[in-house]
Amino acid sequence: MWHCTTLTARTDRPLADVEWAHVAVLLLDAAGIAPLGDVEACRWIALRHARDHIHLVATLARQDGRRPNLRGNYYRIRDTCDQIENELGLSPTQRVR
């Protein structure tokens, strides 16, 4: 199982459900869990139970029986977070070195 918590800064505006859905799809694509347009991708859910964050949970078994390609996903997710922050006007996060 794969789990990722994604949150906004306390000073950021609340995101609408459709915005959180967009964030989830972009992050799961970047992670290699559910590449855009891949009908055989891993199954996943996004759970929003507070105004400032979501939890993404996914299986690590694709529908075709193969494992997802997770190599380098940290860097792709990091770049996607930068893109999302810019696109939605959110506070930028600091990079961990």
Rank of each mutant, 00 (worst) to 15 (best):
D64I: 08
H53P: 04
L15N: 13
N69V: 02
L60R: 09
P68T: 00
G65L: 00
L26Y: 12
A30G: 09
T80H: 04
A16E: 09
P68E: 06
H22D: 15
P14A: 14
I45Q: 07
W44I: 04
D29S: 09
D79N: 05
I33K: 02
P68K: 00
A21I: 09
L28M: 05
G37W: 03
V39F: 08
A31N: 15
H49Y: 13
L26G: 05
C81G: 04
G65H: 01
A34Q: 03
A31V: 15
D52F: 11
R66G: 09
R66K: 13
A30S: 10
W20L: 15
G37P: 09
Y75P: 10
G32H: 14
Q63M: 02
I77A: 08
N73P: 04
R51T: 14
D52E: 12
T59A: 05
A31M: 12
P14Y: 02
V25W: 01
V25G: 00
H22K: 10
L47S: 13
G72N: 03
R78I: 04
R48V: 09
A31I: 13
L70H: 06
D52A: 14
H22N: 10
R13W: 08
P35H: 12
D64R: 07
A61D: 14
L26E: 08
D29Y: 15
G72E: 05
Y75C: 15
L27P: 07
R62P: 00
A24V: 11
A16K: 13
I45F: 00
W20G: 12
E19P: 14
V39N: 08
L60M: 10
A46W: 07
V57E: 03
H22S: 14
D64M: 08
D12F: 02
N69G: 09
H22A: 10
D52Q: 13
I45R: 13
A24S: 14
V57Q: 05
H49A: 07
T80R: 01
G65A: 04
V39C: 10
H55V: 05
D17V: 06
P35D: 03
I77W: 11
G32Q: 07
A46T: 12
Q63C: 01
Y75R: 15
A41G: 04
H49Q: 13
L26P: 03
N73I: 02
C81A: 09
L70V: 03
W20F: 11
D52H: 12
R71D: 06
W20E: 14
P14K: 06
L28R: 04
L26W: 15
E19F: 11
P35N: 06
T59F: 03
Q63L: 07
C81W: 06
H22Y: 13
A30Q: 13
P35M: 13
